[in-house]
Design a protein around this nucleic acid. Structure first.
Lengths: 180, 180
DNA sequence: TTGACAAGCTAACACCGTTAGCCTAGCTTG
DNA sequence: CAAGCTAGGCTAACGGTGTTAGCTTGTCAA
């Protein structure tokens, strides 16, 4: 609760517009003034609807979890029944990477710092992580797989692997090792 | 070259003081004004020595790579000869985690975004990564291990694992899987 | 009809990185 | 030794950031 559910339409509009600016133009382009401008109002008026930038970030992060979670669940559900754990984890990992690469700015916002858990709808975080947790089996391995997936993703997004490195190979090597 | 080697003493002092502020008080506390203040000068005077904040960041990042690399090499060199790859990777991973947890703000600065490679001393990045690469063996597995280590580390630093989760277990599970 | 309130506005504040332009002490050079 | 250059400080200021205070106005309820 408390998330977007009981939020007025103007708040939902603000989050939608903010996500649009973020994804199209990047983090630096999303300011209280630019957001207000796109909504046809002045920056201070935003504060009639939203407490401040931290809350806006939290609302965008929650929406990001919903969207990413949907992609992961979809991939997980699409796996043929009786798949090996390796195949299942491979499918989820592929969806994870694909979603993040398609929404780099939002992914960075969602993962680049502490999670504002007190502003997040209850259960959302766990629901988003569910497909990965299920595919990994053991809790320790689930955490390891999550760390691996996030590491691969953020390092790729930030261009920190050597140029020309075969990241597909690293992904499959890691997933196969972790799913054993 | 071009790093700190040919830098004047005032630049080296600036980097030292900046690292001190960063590690003690966090990223937000490190501003051009606060840095200048600690050096007994005004902010604009900093620009007589340093091009701007990006260059300061790059200098701090390079110094971070030197320090982290020293810790990793030390751990790697301390491993008894004839160690299994699992034992070696475990030792390096432990040193990686320990160093990052001891220097959270610097670690975040070093890894939280694209690496300014054109401002980094040549070969430093590869030297820092060397112990991990050597312990992993295969290049694909080295990248996977790097991603895993960074993922575990940054997620722990940001408190993104469930409170009370046994991260030691996740570390060993991941390392053992990757070193097989 | 009146009053309350939601939702806009302008002006302003503190802080950020950064630039322009001035001053002065000290070294170099004719 | 005098002249001049330069390194390295300074103040003032700019544009940008998130944010607050306080005013106005339109709409809806009593």
């Amino acid at each position: 609760m408390s998330g977007v559910i009981d939020a007025g339409p103007r708040v939902r509009e603000a989050v939608t517009v903010a996500l649009d600016i973020l994804e199209r133009e990047g983090r630096d382009a999303l300011t209280m003034r630019s957001l207000a401008g796109r909504m046809g109002i002045r920056a201070p008026s935003l504060y009639k609807h939203i407490r401040g930038k931290e809350e806006l970030d939290a609302l965008m992060i929650a929406e990001g979890f919903r969207r990413a979670g949907a992609a992961l669940h979809e991939a997980s559900d699409a796996a043929p029944p009786g798949s090996t754990r390796t195949a299942l984890l491979l499918a989820v990992a592929h969806a994870y990477r694909a979603w993040a690469l398609a929404h780099p700015h939002l992914y960075r916002l969602m993962t680049g710092g502490p999670l504002p858990r007190d502003r997040m709808p209850e259960g959302l975080e766990a629901w988003t992580a569910e497909p990965l947790v299920r595919a990994a089996g053991d809790p320790d391995l689930a955490r390891a797989a999550f760390a691996f997936a996030h590491g691969m993703t953020i390092l790729e997004l930030d261009g920190r692997f050597p140029p020309g490195a075969d990241l597909g190979g690293a992904w499959t090597a890691g997933v196969e090792a972790l799913a054993r």
